[in-house]
Amino acid sequence: MTAVSSTAPAPTSPPNLLEVDGLVVEYAAKGWRRPPFRALRGVSLDIRAGETVGLVGESGSGKTTLGRAVLGLAPVTEGEIRYAGRVISALGGRERRALSDEIQVVFQDPYTSLNPAMTVGDILSEPLLVSGTSRADADARVRSLLDDVRLPADAAHRLPREFSGGQRQRVAIARALCRDPRLIVCDEPVSALDLSTQSRVLDLFVEIQERTGVAYLFITHDLSVVRCVSHRVAVMYRGEIVESGGAATVTAQPQNPYTRRLMLAAPVPDPDRQRERREQRRSLATAQGG
C-alpha cells in the first residue's frame, strides 16, 4: 500500500479518494411479502484524500447505513461505490478484506466496539497479525499507536472495561489507525462521550488528520460537532442527501428547508441568542406548516 506521507496535503486538486454514486440500500422487511425497506434512495457523495466530509442527519436518515455500505457491511442494491477509481461495492470476501489496509472504522459505542475479553494490546495487534506483520513488529507498532492516541504504554495489558468511555474511544481510534488507512469512517464517534471528553477526542481526530493526511467520513447527528471537524458537510434526510457544501456555508446559511429546521432546532449555549433562535424556528415552522 502507498502510505500517505506526513507532509501537508498536495497543493493541486487531489483526485477523489471515495466516490459514492446513486447508492441504494434496501433491507428485507419483516413479514411476508412486504416491500423491502429502502434505507438509502440514491445517494451520491465524494471524499478527497485528506478531507473530512461530515454527514449529518437525525435517526432514520440513513447516515449510518451509508457508512456501513462504504465499509462493506450493508448490502448495495443499486449504484456504485468507488475507492481510488476502483468499484468496491461488489467485491468478494477476499478482495474486500484486502481493502482493510485502506478503509477503517471508528464506531459510536466505545463499550460494544471493543471485545471485552481481549486486552487492548490484542485488540490493536490483531489486524496487524492478520496482514502478516511479525509479532515483534506488531508490538512495537502497538506502542507507537498508544502514544499517538495519548494512552499510556501499559494500556496494552489491560481490558477495555478498565478504561473510561473517552479512553476506549482512543483505543478504537488506534485500532483504526493501525494499518495506516487512507479513509476512516467515523460513525458518531463522540456522541457517547461527555462534553469535555468529546472536545479532546475531536482535537485528536483533527491532529491525526493533519499529521497523516487520512480522510474521514464523519457521521454524526450533532451539527456543532460536524461543523468543527468537517471541511465539507452533507445533510441527510430520509435516505437522501438534501444539501451539501462547505462546512461554514451549510451550517451558517442553509438553503434547504430541512437543514434550516435542523440548524434552528439545535439550542445554543447563550440564553439571549437561544431565545432569538427559538423565535426564528417558530416563525419558520409556521411558514413551513402553513
Partner: peptide, 15 residues
C-alpha cells in the same frame, strides 16, 4: 468545551 461557537473548519485549500 461546547462546540456551538467553535469556528467552522474551512474547506481544503484547493477547493
Amino acid at each position: 468545551s461546547t462546540l456551538e461557537d467553535a469556528p467552522p473548519r474551512t474547506p481544503l485549500p484547493d477547493i
